[in-house]
Design a binder for these strands. Structure first.
Length: 500
RNA sequence: GGCGCCAUGGUGUAAUUGGUUAACACGCCGCCCUCUCAAGGCGGAGAGUUCGGGUUCGAUCCCCGAUGGCGCUACCA
């Protein structure tokens, strides 16, 4: 091939972009970028009832968030504009007239009831449910006359007399016997052209060289091949990507929880994590020992020939692993900005724009402490919640805590510790804290868990959590800030714990 | 029912043109670190490649069949 490949992602704006679509877009984008080709975005909105402008806007936002910019399409336009099918109706009409004129297509006057009856009898006879071709034989003068007279008709393509075959980059040669393919409807009786038709016309006119899409389209492909042939157009290469399955091995859907790209963004998963994960879902680099890939690295490594044909099960655990990796890797300033709204939304912090530099600096430290503990940013407020306050009664009542607190040793540790805290004013430093703990240890004989757990419960409400060395400064510093929720100092925590 | 696609540990993928102790990662288990949790480091278990036939000196890999899963079977996309 001498010319640069041209690929397209052609979503219909009938809902949000989900992981399956995102992976299709990603593979198209990677294929184009790897070969220096062109990535086209085309909006398939011929289903006027279900298409909505807000979905198109959301789609574009999601694609941009993933970093998959397009070379031609809405917003950037290009030599084959328009890129929205609802704006290309005239083009389809011209092509339909040509097909009719050349006898490649015909008017079908069959009613829905007739077609229904045909299907029913075909099913009863265990035969393929294909259209009988009843209207194929209507002579052109009569056909034209009936149309003229106002009789409703759809336009159907004549499926040729030979097997329909095409080459698929991930599956090899695929062939469908023509007897199993119905003469497809090209234009509805309403005059609106149908998906299989417009997609083909557009792919050909936009000079798409590689059609990369989900394998739910594989059975549509013979019809599209017939359309290419009817127009005398050269067939593109196809690549049908396998389905993404849920853990129950059913096609992934909203039923399996969040599958919309936007929801991953809202959860606080970084786009590079999602991209990396999606790339791995159906593709493996040569050798297969690497898992972490940036978009640039993927661009370099990606080969369509290495894409698997078998369906893949979506695995949250692995996505989370990747998510944690990228969260730790990311620029702190970026993560701070992304994490902040989750705290503000929980009422723990003011909105970012109104926060002072001292609060921001404090938050940075807080984030550094808790980030390793989460897989996605929206878990943060809960993880760090005890910093902002906890229910002493509930903490004492907690079974595991109660067991720790019940021992005589724990009681001695706590009262010794409280005495230390009460005896002094001012900020508690980690050094001071350490010194106190050593003293308590000497006085009570408690050590290890026996020493630390009671204190940890008193201070945080839980027997587990981040190291005290890092925790103490955050608590103390936080207590001096003006926040929507007061952060209690070590001293306040001790007082509060004993008050109940 | 018809047509099509697919089939390697629980999951995602590897395995020069048929010859490997079937590899890597997630997860799981254990150990180390540690007051604890998370992170991190180290180690382990887990598949003989869905099943049955071929072809071959030799099949994860090629062919056939079965089984199972999925998709399509619309005047939806």
């Amino acid at each position: 091939m001498t010319s640069k490949p041209r690929v397209r992602f052609a979503p219909s704006p009938t809902g949000y972009l989900h992981v399956g679509g995102a992976r299709t877009a990603l593979y198209n984008w990677l294929f184009a970028r790897h070969l220096g080709g062109v990535f086209v975005l085309r909006i398939e909105d011929t289903d006027l009832d279900r298409s909505e402008a807000r979905h198109e806007a959301a789609l574009i936002e999601d694609l941009q968030w993933l970093g998959l910019e397009w070379d031609e399409g809405p917003g950037v336009e290009g030599p084959h504009a328009p890129y929205r099918q609802s704006e290309r109706l005239g083009i389809y009409r011209e092509h339909t007239e040509r097909l009719l004129r050349e006898g490649q297509a015909y008017r079908c006057f069959c009613t829905g009831e007739q077609l229904e009856a045909e299907r029913a009898s075909a099913a009863a006879d265990h035969r393929p449910q294909v259209y009988s071709g009843r209207c194929r034989g209507i002579a052109e003068p009569e056909s034209a006359r009936r149309a003229e007279a106002g009789e409703a008709f759809a336009v159907r393509l004549k499926i040729p007399d030979h097997p329909l075959r095409f080459h698929d980059l991930v599956r090899g040669e695929v062939e469908f016997p023509n007897e199993t393919v119905s003469d497809p409807i090209l234009v509805r009786s309403s005059g609106m052209p149908v998906y299989n038709y417009v997609v083909t016309v557009d792919d050909a006119l936009m000079e798409i060289t590689h059609v990369i899409r989900g394998d739910d389209h594989i059975s549509n492909t013979p019809k599209q091949v017939a359309i290419y042939e009817a127009f005398g157009w050269k067939l593109p290469e196809f690549a049908h990507l396998s389905t993404i399955l849920g853990s129950d091995r059913e096609k992934l859907s909203k039923r399996h929880g969040a599958t919309a790209v936007a929801s991953f963004r809202e959860m606080g998963i970084l786009p590079e994590a999602l991209v990396n994960y999606l790339a791995l879902l159906g593709w493996g680099a040569e050798g297969g020992t690497r898992e972490i890939f940036s978009l640039e690295e993927l661009t370099r490594e990606f080969r369509l020939e290495r894409v698997t044909a078998s369906p893949a099960v979506f695995d949250w655990e692995k996505l989370h692993w990747l998510s944690r990796h990228y969260l730790k890797q990311a620029e702190p300033a970026r993560v701070e900005e992304l994490a902040w709204p989750h705290f503000a939304g929980a009422g723990l912090l003011p909105v970012l724009e109104t926060a002072g530099p001292d609060v921001k600096a404090w938050f940075a430290k807080l984030l550094a402490l808790f980030l390793p503990a989460v897989s996605q940013l929206d878990e943060l407020p809960k993880k760090a919640g005890f910093i902002f306050g906890f229910d002493v009664g509930a903490a004492r009542a907690n079974e595991e805590n109660a067991a720790v607190l019940a021992t005589e040793s724990a009681q001695k540790v706590l009262s010794a510790f409280a005495a230390k805290v009460g005896a002094q004013d001012g900020t508690v430093t980690p050094e001071q804290f350490k010194a106190w703990m050593n003293e308590v240890k000497a006085e009570t004989g408690a050590k290890g868990k026996g020493l630390f757990h009671p204190v940890r419960i008193a201070l945080t409400g839980s027997h587990s959590g981040p190291e005290f060395d890092k925790l103490i400064p955050i608590v103390e510093e936080g207590s001096r800030l003006t926040l929507p929720v007061h952060v209690a100092s070590v001293r306040e925590r001790v007082e509060r714990f004993f008050a109940e």
